[in-house]
């Protein structure tokens, strides 16, 4: 049952090539997924602004359109208002906890350095050891890097708080029970029965198409994320054959093999969305001219649009909040390691200092 502890060990050149390869891969994966998510957000925004699909479902003019009901249930099911209220309340505490660990770690370095300097002044040449200031430079650089990251995180928190402030009210409305939600939507006398009309069925088909494109993207995103290829053996062979690794050439070729196909599919997905959205906007033009527009209908439509958009804001906001929470928790782990490094070295310095003092007092 012997497992070779050194099984994964590879020459440093291979390890470094792997690091560069992985960051190239991450860049491609993030770009592809980012493009698709951005396109989906755009599509959601366009549909919400056209009050689609709600406008097609809104027959009676006084009951909640099916798509709005589904959106309401979806976010209630994901935790609704309480979950984002809680996450937004926790953010400052998470930030503060990280700051305290960082400040405390740097404080003990400063404190030890101060005593080292005092003793150096007192004993002059006889205080034979490296100055704490030199010794702590790398740790202080690392501390500085963490502070920069924390400052950027604070900016992100501000963005999240602003989004929360802007959208909380509508999200709260969308989270209300059906009766209250329905009461909040201005009613309008029933739209002229457009059901049979050609443009409604065209719009319905187009909406089905855009949904299909979005569903395909979810699968594509999973495929892209799960694509794996063990480059280690490729780099090892290259090193063995040529004595060196042309990382860029090998990586670029391999990455193209793995992600070339996906890149095409993503571009195709963006292209078909653009086409479908164009058609939707044209058909919607026709659809809205046919419907009688009056104050009540317009008011109702405005509210339905806001409710549809509130769902998208909720999805975005809760993903931002989860990302922030994960960020701060991961940073805390890094900071605890950093704090250990600082307290270990300070402890060692104190032990060394006491011994040196003892020798000096004896001699």
């Amino acid at each position: 049952k012997f497992t070779d502890l050194f099984e994964k060990m590879v020459p440093l050149a291979v390890q470094q090539s792997m690091t560069v390869y992985n960051s190239r891969k991450a860049e491609i994966v993030n770009r592809l997924i980012g493009q698709m998510r951005e396109a989906t957000n755009l599509s959601n925004g366009v549909l919400a602004s056209l009050n689609l699909p709600a406008a097609l479902e809104d027959l009676s003019g006084d009951s909640i359109p099916q798509s709005i009901l589904e959106k309401s249930r979806a976010i209630i099911q994901q935790g609704g208002l309480q979950s984002i209220d809680q996450l937004i309340k926790d953010l400052p505490e998470l930030l503060q906890r990280n700051r305290e660990i960082l400040d405390e770690s740097l404080r003990i370095l400063d404190e030890e350095e101060a005593t080292d300097n005092d003793l150096r002044n007192k004993f002059g040449q006889r205080w034979q050891r490296t100055a704490s200031n030199d010794l702590y430079k790398p740790l202080r650089t690392e501390g500085g890097n963490v502070r920069n990251v924390l400052d950027k995180a604070v900016q992100a928190d501000i963005v999240v708080k602003q989004r929360y402030g802007t959208h909380r009210e509508m999200i709260a409305l969308l989270c209300k029970p059906e009766a209250e939600l329905n009461a909040a939507i201005p009613s309008a006398n029933p739209a002229k029965t457009l059901q049979g009309s050609e443009v409604v069925s065209v719009l319905r088909a187009l909406l089905a198409n855009i949904n299909k494109v979005k569903m395909e993207r979810e699968k594509l995103e999973n495929d892209i994320k799960s694509a794996q290829f063990d480059m280690t053996s490729k780099f090892l062979t290259a090193l063995a054959q040529d004595g060196a690794i042309n990382e860029e050439a090998i990586s670029v070729t391999e990455l193209d093999n793995i992600y070339g196909g996906y890149t095409q599919k993503v571009l195709q997905s963006l292209k078909s969305q653009e086409e479908i959205l164009g058609n939707i906007q044209n058909s919607h033009q026709e659809f809205s001219t046919m419907r009688q527009s009056n104050a009540d209908a317009n008011q109702r439509e405005e509210m339905l649009k806001k409710l549809a958009a509130a769902h998208d804001s909720y999805v975005e906001l809760s993903s931002n909040l989860k990302e922030g929470t994960k960020f701060y928790n991961e940073l805390t782990e890094i900071l605890l390691k950093f704090q250990n490094k600082c307290s270990d070295i300070v402890f060692a310095r104190k032990t060394e200092r006491d011994e040196l003092l003892k020798d000096l007092q004896q001699s």
Binding site: T19, A153, I334
Partner: peptide, 16 residues
Amino acid sequence: SLYPSLEDLKVDKVMK
């Protein structure tokens, strides 16, 4: 993503 990446902070001494 909104929040900065922690990758650089995670890089251990060996890689520097």
